[in-house]
Simulated assay, not measured.
Amino acid sequence: MHLTKIQIRDYLFGYIAIIVMVAVSAHFKTERIILPEFAVMSVGMLALREMNWIKQPYKIVATPVMTALIGYLVNLLPLAYIFKIGLVLFLMLVLLKLTRSRLAPAFATGLLPIITDAHHWTFILIIILLTGILLVGVLIHGSHKRISFELKPISSVAVWQYIWITAIWVLLVHGLGQDIMVGIPPVSVLLLEAVQQVKYPLYMWGKHVLALTLAAALGVLGVILTNNWVLDMAITLPTIFVLLQIMKLELPAVYAFPPLMLILPKAMLPNLVLYTALASGVMLGCVFITKQYKVMRS
């Protein structure tokens, strides 16, 4: 995949923004400043200029903040972990539908308060600050002004597909006694993108599952092999970039894995690669089957 000098520059801007976030977190010796979806949105908005994400610039801040509030408030409820995840996913689907937003990474900001068991209000402030930085970057570049198509809301069909596919995964994980693995943010984000596609061929399913699994493995290895957060990001982010170039994919969601490793509960790390493969294989496999069934019926 050939990249222009401008694209390389934009990727560097995105990577630098991620590394600065992690460096500030390391300096203050806190994980609260790390927002994995900031990595996804940095690449998607500053480098790839994802049209569905930057078409409505004000939602770059508004949507993640609203989903984060949903996750934060649900986490305060006296519910089992698996029910919290299910409730948050449903409420976020409703929110994106009502607000006509297509910002898939906002799903992860809603899951994060539950996965990390966030109880402090500063979590919301961090999201406002980091998404505000991205908003400024998008406004300065001005690429959103050149998008002429009308942004359509997520279809009701896609919403229901997301719900029943997620329900299958929830039941499977619960049956395996691994409720803690029910919410893997990069997989949830990519699933939302996939159900909105008109076609989802088998080769794309394979590439997506492989990319997610390898990115998770790189994220885990980065944590194991380095004791320095900044060095970890400096190594794993370019490695993921090379991986995606080889696979000829533009997949911002996988960039969440390196910073995600820094804030996940330690109990998730040993099985994360395996369950990323299972989650992506099962859920994206359901998308493939659904799309194939639709083609056969038409």
Rank of each mutant, 00 (worst) to 15 (best):
T4A: 02
T4Q: 05
K5N: 10
I6L: 13
I8R: 10
I8F: 08
A17S: 14
V24I: 15
T30D: 04
I33K: 03
E37I: 01
E37Y: 06
F38V: 05
M41Q: 03
S42G: 09
L48C: 06
N52L: 01
I54E: 03
K59F: 04
P64N: 08
V65I: 14
M66N: 06
I70L: 13
I70P: 08
G71L: 04
L73I: 15
V74N: 04
P78H: 12
A80R: 03
Y81L: 12
I82M: 14
F83P: 04
I85T: 07
I85H: 07
L89Q: 09
L91Q: 10
M92R: 05
L93N: 15
K97A: 14
S101V: 03
F107W: 12
A108N: 10
G110N: 08
D117G: 08
D117C: 06
L130T: 14
L135Y: 15
G137E: 05
K145V: 00
R146Q: 11
E150T: 02
L151V: 06
K152H: 04
P153D: 02
V157D: 05
V157W: 11
V159L: 07
Q161E: 15
I163R: 10
I165P: 10
I168P: 10
V170M: 14
H174Q: 13
D179T: 12
M181L: 14
I184W: 00
V187E: 07
V195K: 10
Q197V: 02
L210V: 00
A211H: 01
A215I: 00
A216Y: 00
A217N: 03
V220Y: 10
T226Q: 03
N227R: 13
V230Q: 09
V230M: 10
M233H: 10
T236D: 01
L237E: 00
F241C: 03
Q245L: 12
K248Q: 13
E250D: 11
E250R: 12
A253Y: 01
P258V: 11
M261R: 04
M261E: 04
L262I: 15
L264M: 13
P265K: 02
L274M: 14
L274I: 15
S280N: 05
V282L: 14
V287F: 11
F288K: 07
M296W: 13
